[in-house]
């Protein structure tokens, strides 16, 4: 067991409807790292995240979170999860943004919650952080997908997690909203939170993440973004791609790396 590891997967495989969704994945994510999982649609990214969170049980292999086997893991307050909400939340669900965020404080059975009108300063604080304070009393199902996404991010943040897992957090969010989400993630990373994110926004994750895990049923590579080659991306997406590198800046102090870092792959396209 390595205490510096937030997530450890060892030869994890999962089969769905007779076809392997994830096969033989071994992945280690260090505490404090910002790791992005990228891959084409149906490549097993969301399945892998569900396995990590214990939502589905792998057919084989082991999963440890903060050194504990996920089946015996009880420190759920250390994990914040933002699911994909691209399909939206049912408009008729009578629950306000404030209530959804307050639910994020859950740490265990609390029999008098129903009678408590506590909707404290911590709710307001995280809502302000995601610029959703004006929507606190609005029904979450009536908001846009991007606003719902930000509400769920606030719900995850209120838990003050050590590990934040996000499944396509900027799906449905406009460019400015997406940039605000990444700014928030930068701040969280600076405060030591381990971040695991699934994203199709390759350019942004190359710019923001410490490491990138390329998944297409198997783990094709797991490395810092600057080590990722075009060949890796071709193997990942299955077609030749053109990657444009823009700007170089240095910000790997937290990981003791001196190598300059590319500002990102601003464009990923068919050649």
């Amino acid at each position: 067991m390595d205490d510096t590891l937030a997530v450890e997967l060892e030869e994890v495989s999962y089969t769905y409807a007779g076809a392997p969704a994830v096969h033989g994945v071994t992945l280690r994510i260090k505490s404090g790292d910002f790791t992005a999982i990228v891959g084409p649609n149906g490549s097993g990214k969301s399945t892998l995240v569900k396995v990590i969170l214990g939502l589905i049980k792998p057919d084989s292999g082991s999963v440890r979170v903060f050194g504990t086997d996920i089946e015996r893991f009880r420190d759920w307050h250390r994990i914040g999860y933002v699911p994909q909400v691209s399909t939206g939340i049912h408009a008729m669900f009578p629950i306000t943004v404030g209530e959804v965020v307050a639910h994020g404080r859950y740490t265990g059975f609390s029999p008098f919650d129903f009678w408590s009108r506590k909707n404290g300063a911590d709710v307001d604080s995280v809502l302000r952080a995601v610029d959703m304070m004006d929507f606190k009393r609005r029904r979450i199902g009536e908001l846009s997908t991007g606003q719902q996404q930000r509400a769920l991010i606030a719900r995850a943040l209120i838990r003050k997690p050590d590990l934040l897992v996000m499944d396509e957090p900027i799906a449905g969010v406009d460019a400015q909203g997406g940039e605000e989400v990444y700014m928030l993630l930068r701040q969280l990373r600076e405060s030591g939170v381990t971040i695991l994110i699934i994203s199709h926004d390759v350019g942004a994750v190359m710019r923001e993440a410490c490491t990138v895990a390329c998944i297409n049923c198997t783990l094709l590579c797991h490395c810092p973004p600057h080590e990722l080659t075009e060949d890796d991306l071709v193997r990942l997406y299955g077609f030749p791609v053109e990657v444009l590198h823009h700007g170089v800046h240095h910000d790997h102090h937290a990981h003791g790396e001196d190598a300059p870092r590319h500002d990102g792959f601003d464009r990923l396209a068919h050649r």
Partner: peptide, 18 residues
């Protein structure tokens, strides 16, 4: 109430909340 509400809202979120 909290458990019922969270489970109804999103059972995956509820599970990850413990």
């Amino acid at each position: 109430f909290t458990e019922l509400a969270q489970t109804s809202f999103d059972d995956a979120l509820a599970r990850v909340s413990g």
